[in-house]
Write a protein that binds this DNA or RNA. Structure first.
Length: 646
DNA sequence: GGGCTGTACTG
DNA sequence: CAGTACA
DNA sequence: GCCC
């Protein structure tokens, strides 16, 4: 926010955007919550043609600080919004199109007042938002909705309003407030009779009935007490770090905190400490969280690339090598390398030698010495050696086929197969399962990520089909979409249904499956639920595509669960995977067990085979994500903060 | 020297 | 049951 | 492969 008006520096749009992202990367841009522009990719057309005006700069900053990705050049394939006050003609000219009516329908066009409106309606974090017409919206609190776009005062071009009304409303950016109801998707509720079921609408609200005292995993007291950790180990209780002891040795403090952090990786990074300027004795400063994945995608500048990127690259190779081998030792080595990579990525200073590397949690003797070798000789002989064998490349190629894992891939390699063509021809007598056939056929598509907008578009076709089966269904899009990522590897849909009217969603999966195939949205099945017909709980995996020519196949998973498990299901299905493992790990350490149905206390495990449970335990939390976080002593984290991997 | 998440579907 | 996949 |  270069606000030095006195100096009156003249910025061009590109310069200013550069500057903003530089500041953001350096953690110097205030990032107020909530980031309700998260997931939006915006082309903002400045009022000032060559030199930005103050208002332009303010709007740029507003967009970036609330999570938007900015386009330097208008790109209709990825843009979600255009902000312009230049009038239809001028805008069209400057976008390089004939008419604003040529803007793809899904792109919202709004004027500059829109931004201020959103900030005033949603910026302070109130639950209840004020609609443009002055009324309060209690029901669909939190996120910009249809009315925000349809208000003629906020729309950029009245020409497009009609068009906008015709298209389904977009789900808001998938970010939640800390408190209050947690409605997942569209701010526009499905048509429903509002005479009944007052209690069901906030489908993911806090547990309304159950008593909330914290259950203890009492039945497993033997397990708990034998380890020195009590039910809630104080050491891992992830309260925000107190910042006062920043005096003596910031570096030492960094290590201890990094260690703590790395241990479970459950703490929100916003409470982590920014040491980037520790060398200037600036003391400790907390930074606000920036959702990294969103930035990484269309940020022209590679996001705050890591100081140790070269080392990471080598470790990635080691990880790849070990994950290519179908032996358990290798799997765990790969696991270790991954952890190592994560922690080094978060390491704020350049690693100069093996000893320094060794200080990082997760980096042991062996890795440290490899890093040392790399820093002194410029390469790691082990890597050169292993990669020369060629199995790694082949396995990586083959495991790109859905349904082919390291075992199969490695066997194929042993049989002499090297290319996908070899696989296709059935060289060495290899037979493909139906699922692998599909995986091979759509190899490229399946291994591509899709733009967030496409995931949304597909979801918005599926949702009404589901609601036509039963309007009371709760249908939400999860996974990386819910975490706010700008691109998604697949589409994850969670379906459940309130039980207050005594009815259930039994059989919905079968009908939905049929309906989606009929609508030509589902194209191939990969794994069908064992019991689509009547179970309340089942998983579908398959491929889908937009029912238009030349659209790519996309991976889709549909998960159905009983209503009472919705909190745990949200948690599970939102991920990311590393975050889930960390949560489950901590749950385990505390004597609980966590799965997609709930948090269980008093689980008794077979002492010989720990994964095997002698006693299933009692469910102590499952209806809301919050209660699970709370019981596990993990500070609440919004979906987009739950990123531990990539 | 044991643990490193916990589950569902395929064949 | 092993293998693969999902977050 | 790392950590306890």
């Amino acid at each position: 926010m270069p606000k030095d008006r006195k100096v009156a520096k003249k910025w061009t749009a590109d310069e200013y955007i550069d500057d903003l992202f530089q500041k953001k990367d350096a953690g110097k841009l205030p990032m107020p919550n909530p980031p309700f522009f998260l997931g939006m990719e915006v082309f903002y057309l400045p009022i000032g043609q060559d030199v930005l005006r103050d208002i332009d700069m303010k709007r740029y900053e507003r967009l970036v600080s609330r999570g938007a990705v900015l386009q330097r050049r208008y790109d209709p394939t990825t843009a979600t919004h255009i902000v312009s006050e230049n009038g239809a003609k001028v805008t069209a000219t400057r976008l390089g199109i004939n008419s604003v009516l040529d803007i793809p329908e899904h792109i919202r066009t709004v004027n500059g007042a829109f931004l201020g409106h959103l900030v005033s309606c949603y910026g302070s974090g109130t639950h209840v938002r004020t609609l443009p017409n002055g009324r309060k919206d209690y029901e669909n609190a939190h996120w910009p909705g249809r009315e925000d776009f349809d208000d003629p005062k906020l729309a950029a071009f009245t020409e497009r309003i009609k068009k906008i009304e015709e298209i389904p409303v977009a789900p808001p950016p998938q970010v939640r407030r800390r408190h209050g109801e947690r409605r997942l998707s569209s701010p526009q509720p499905p048509a429903r009779s509002d005479t009944e079921d007052e209690d069901e609408d906030p489908r993911f609200k806090r547990n309304p009935t159950k008593s909330r005292q914290l259950p203890t995993p009492s039945q497993s007291s033997d397990i708990i007490s034998r380890s020195s950790s009590p039910g809630l180990p104080p050491t891992s209780s992830p309260t925000p770090y107190d910042d006062e002891k920043a005096d003596s040795d910031p570096l030492a403090e960094f290590y201890s905190k990094a260690r703590e952090e790395a241990e479970l990786g459950l703490n929100d990074e916003s409470e982590f400490v920014d040491y980037t300027n520790h060398g200037h004795k600036r003391g400790v400063r907390t930074i606000t969280h920036t959702p990294p994945s969103v930035w990484s995608v269309d940020n022209p500048r590679p996001t705050a690339s890591c100081l140790n990127q070269d080392i990471i690259d080598e470790l990635e190779r080691l990880h790849l090598i070990h994950s290519s081998r179908p032996f358990e030792e290798d799997a765990w080595r790969a696991f270790s390398y991954k952890k190592c990579i994560r922690n080094i990525k978060n390491h704020p200073i350049r690693i100069k030698n093996g000893n320094e590397a060794r200080q990082i949690y997760g980096v042991g003797e062996k890795t440290a010495s490899k890093i040392n070798e790399f820093l002194t000789t410029g390469k790691i002989s082990r890597i050169t050696h292993e990669l020369s064998k060629g199995d790694v490349a082949a396995v990586k190629l083959f495991t790109g086929i859905y349904g082919v894992g390291s075992h199969t891939a490695y066997n194929w390699y042993t049989l002499g197969l090297r290319t996908l063509e070899d696989v296709r021809r059935g060289k060495g007598g290899v037979k493909l399962s139906p699922c692998q056939e599909t995986g091979l056929k759509f190899y490229d598509d399946i291994n591509l990520r899709m733009p967030r907008a496409e995931a949304e578009e597909i979801f918005l076709m599926i949702k009404p089909i589901a609601l036509a089966i039963d309007p009371k269904l709760s249908v939400d899009i999860m996974g990386s979409f819910r975490r706010g990522k700008a691109d998604c590897g697949d589409i994850d849909i969670l379906i459940t249904r309130p039980i207050h009217d005594g009815k259930t969603h039994a059989g919905v999966m079968a009908r939905l499956w049929a309906g989606l195939h009929k609508a030509r949205i589902l194209t191939e099945d990969l794994a069908l639920p064992s019991n689509m017909e009547d179970s309340l709980e089942c998983t579908y995996r398959g491929l889908c595509s937009l029912p238009v020519p030349d659209s790519r196949r996309r991976r889709i998973d549909i998960l159905m669960l009983p209503w009472q498990y919705r909190g745990a299901a949200l948690l599970y299905y939102t991920g990311d995977d590393i975050f889930n493992r960390a949560m489950r790990f901590k749950a385990g350490k505390m004597g609980y067990s966590l799965n997609q149905r709930g948090l269980y206390a008093g689980v008794v495990r077979n002492p010989n085979k720990r994964t095997e449970k002698t006693n299933q335990g009692n469910i102590v939390a499952s209806e809301t994500e919050e209660e699970i976080f709370k019981i596990l002593g993990v500070p609440w984290q919004e979906p987009w903060q739950r990123v531990r991997g990539a």
